[in-house]
Amino acid sequence: MKRVFIALTALCLLAGAPALWAADSIKIGLMGPMTGPWASEGQEMKQVLDLLAKDLNDKGGLLGKTVEVVSEDDGGDPRTAALAAQRLATQGIVGVIGTYGSSVTEATQNIYDESKILQIANGSTAIRLTEKGLKYFFRTCPRDDEQGRVAVQTIQKLGFKKVAILHDNTTYAKGLADEAKGLLEGKGVEIVFYDALTPGEQDYTTILTKMKGANPDVVFFTGYYPEAGLLLRQKKEMNWPVPFIGGDATNNPDLVKIAGKDAAEGFYFLSAPLPKDLPTAEAKAFLGQFEKKYGHQPASIYAVLAGDGFRVLTEAIQATQSTDPDVLADYLHNKMKDFPGLTGTLSFNDKGDRVGEVYRVYKVDADGNFILQP
């Protein structure tokens, strides 16, 4: 009996060891595309969170504990993301920041919700993500219904009457395309082409030729920057001068690298303000820290939006002196008002959506720079 008692005691101590060890730190998860077609986004998300965590720990951490960022790669793929979410859910995290793509986020929402883990997405703008009544889901990026409204305003302001809409059948791109199509038709704008391409292909001349045959004044592409760059390059090779407007997923410097400066010039896209255009004191101080650490400013606004997710989560922990998910969710839904985020003031509604208008319009100049439009 004595040996059995000792063995049982040892097992209990071993079983409790992870919990005791975890108590020394507050773990915050990061789920992003560290590899795959959107790898530049995920890698910069990690740089931002690592820098913010270090700054917080240098100031004493949270609740007397160090903050630890636990990262998982979702590869920009829903199936990979589901596995990443399952791994993170077993590691004692308080919340998770990410991810970038809407369809990728959607594959993880129920996993985190059932585990009572807060999830704060940074680039997932699809409307339906916050229409599910998930208590622990938030996002620092705006929704596609707002983006659709800004897209329609931009198309009308530029005087286009016949519009081609091209998407890629992902949750985000299809949702934005449908939203814009309905709004444009309601304004009397003619939709002369509506179809999807297959992401990841290297030759889009067939679908470009089909669109050209519809004779649009403008093409609104709602997919991601790798495909947008190829479309711009290949339409220039076809000598088709039709202007293109992109949704916010086309906002990445790699678009210009893929398209080439000549082909990218004149391309319009919608986005939250780029890091260089953020006006707040908080943003300027952070951008200075980032540049000092990494030798350049962040290229992606989505990495900075991930930083805002980290900051609102740590603010909620500090304000409530708690890591209880129900306490934190209640604080973010009901008590956080106009928090001074890096990308502007942050509040959330009862669905977990960011409150307020965020989108701006940018145009690529001859040197490949993204220029904010008045």
Rank of each mutant, 00 (worst) to 15 (best):
N215A: 13
D217S: 01
V219Q: 03
V219S: 04
F220A: 04
F220S: 07
T222D: 00
G223V: 13
E227R: 09
E227I: 10
E227S: 00
A228E: 07
A228T: 14
L230V: 04
L231F: 04
L231W: 00
R233K: 10
Q234C: 05
M238H: 10
V242E: 08
V242D: 11
P243W: 00
F244D: 05
I245F: 14
N251E: 09
N252G: 12
P253S: 01
L255K: 07
L255C: 06
V256L: 15
K257Y: 13
K261C: 09
K261Y: 11
D262S: 10
A263E: 08
A263T: 05
E265D: 09
G266I: 04
G266T: 03
Y268L: 13
A272N: 12
P273N: 02
L274A: 06
P275A: 05
D277W: 06
T280A: 06
E282P: 03
A285K: 09
F286N: 04
L287N: 03
Q289R: 15
K292T: 06
K293G: 08
K293C: 14
H296Y: 15
H296D: 13
Q297A: 15
A299G: 14
I301H: 07
Y302E: 14
Y302M: 06
A303M: 05
V304K: 06
D308C: 01
R311Y: 10
R311I: 08
V312A: 10
T314W: 08
A316S: 08
I317N: 13
Q321G: 15
S322A: 01
S322K: 09
D324E: 04
P325I: 03
V327N: 05
L328V: 05
A329D: 01
D330P: 09
Y331W: 02
L332E: 04
H333K: 08
K337E: 05
D338L: 08
F339A: 11
P340T: 02
L342E: 07
